[in-house]
Amino acid sequence: MSHVSEARRPWKLGIALTLLFVMTATFGPLLYAVDPNAQNLLSVLSPPGAQYPLGTDQLGRDVLARLLHSARYSAGIAIAVVVFSIALGCILAGIAQWTGGMISTSLVMFSDAVYALPGLLVTLLLADVLGGGAMVIVFLLWIVAWPEYFRLSYSVGQQIVNSDHVLASRLAGASGGTIFRLQVLPVILPYLLSLGAISVGRIVLAIATLGFLGVGIAPPQAEWGMMINDLRVYWQISPVQLAAPVFAIVWVVLALLILSQSMPKAKPGLN
């Protein structure tokens, strides 16, 4: 069995990049307290300068402020989705593991069905119908994201629970709680966390795609994908303003890339 503590260093670099993004999202808007939606139609598409560090967009809004608020928006949604998904996935995996039989089979089948659903389509289908907004996006991404955690914790959990060492502890009279705390949780947790870190990146990119398509995110809200879509026609006049959200996305991509290349591999029980 592989030990996560022996993971290679890039893994930590990926975590660091992801953390840095989350920190920027948390504290950025506080340190640079400029209203991202304040329009200044007198200085439309003005280049970077003292007043606007990254210039303004086509409506005269501060690009840096929009960038930071967008980071907060995406990171908030992504972390909420990941936390909810881990919770739901683990609880359902626990139930499936505990009860077995019909309930377990139907849970596995249901999660397989949801897993086989292209997630973005569900979001596209329902986001605007449900009125858009952050809560709706969180909800929709959540209902398509949990099966991944369910499958992971179910398959890893299954391996551990059926292993000789858990049986040995059971025969030795250790309680279920003790076994879970000492033998199950420490093994599952690193897998869940690294999948979670990767998911944060993926969800941020999915939100950017939604913003770019103009679905589910109401216009005054600052969003990288939406910023790119708005500014791409002005790429010759305002390259910095367009490059800023692109750079932000590349940052997340990089974090994601390094993480996913070096994350501890779980053996998912496909099919």
Binding site: M1, H3, D164, H165, A168, L171, G173, A174, L182, P186
Partner: peptide, 29 residues
């Protein structure tokens, strides 16, 4: 339960890989 025990085929798999042996003896025995 505790009076009916089993010695496994492979000693390596009968210990949790993530725990120090002292913990196994103190908490799971």
């Amino acid at each position: 339960r505790k009076k009916f025990q089993k010695l496994f085929q492979n000693p390596v798999t009968s210990f949790p890989p993530n725990l120090v042996l002292r913990d196994v003896f103190d908490k799971l025995t």
